[in-house]
Amino acid sequence: MTTSTPQAASRQTTGAPAKASVWRSIWNHRTDYAYVLPALFAMLVVIGYPVYYTLDLSLFKTPASLQLKDKVFIGLENYSTILSSTSFWKVTLQTLIWTAFSTLIAFLLGLGAALALNREFIGRGILRGLLLVPWVVSAVAASYVWKWLYHSDFGVIGALAVQFGLSDKPINFIDNLQTGLPSLIVVNVWKEFSFAMIMLMAGLQTVPEQLLRAAQVDGASVWQRFWHVTFPHLKGVSMVTILLLTVQNFNSFIIPWIMTGGGPAGATDIWITQVYQLAFGRQRWGAAAAYSVILFVIMMSLGYFYVRSLTSGDRARAVE
């Protein structure tokens, strides 16, 4: 014999209409769903299937002597091998350094440039155009140019350093364990800061002029006006810019691959170069797939917490 509490009975009575209203709502919006259905289907094909295939592939070993269709099932061994390898943790640390420094410095430089270009002065348009050049230049072309600028024997930067007496011999930028990664970060920052600049310039348009004037009349210093008036208005666009730069830097490939190929001795290897090398250089398709799944989980987790913190204010307001 079963008994039912008054609360449960109440939930049952209120549940049925709620469920009906969900279906009714879906039915009422059937045209909207029909509009998004093709896009949803395309996403399933071009995203859903590859994700499924990657997950499946990550459970197999793919030796060089076997075709992919003859792959050998090994369960979670690829995952345990990767997570227990010292190279994974070394590369993870390098990826975090690469991403954090690239993102932070590009953002700060972009912010500075946006604030400077937000004022009226002669040549502002030209300067704005010039500062956009790194962003529009092909990453491949830029990487080759920077590779030659950095060249350890005949690079322009090294030669200038010798010319101006800053060094007695050409500087070894990218053939060196210690300076390899920082040198690549400089190139990445050069390439990306204009993106941050453009985003923040757009954000600056939303700062109310009268607020800034009022603060000025009240005797606020330049820093106080920036910190208490301008910056709060840039919070939203800053968060989005940082999110986009972070995702882009986690997924970086072109600059490190072309300039150093992850070398010397793995000093500039980051996640994506490592996955590429595993898959296309060494044909460890299974291991590369497992690596990708691990990265996917890490990046989704980071993204989740980031978006949560980004929208925490909205949720708090919604509760109120």
Binding site: A64, S65, D175, N176, L177, A265, G266, A267, G281
Partner: peptide
């Protein structure tokens, strides 16, 4: 079948590890 990986990756890696002082 493993020759490309040995020649194009393992041998250069060995050189780089020794020449950079990583090993």
């Amino acid at each position: 079948p493993e020759a490309p990986e040995i020649m194009n990756i393992i041998i250069p890696d060995m050189l780089q590890n020794a020449l950079t002082g990583a090993m």
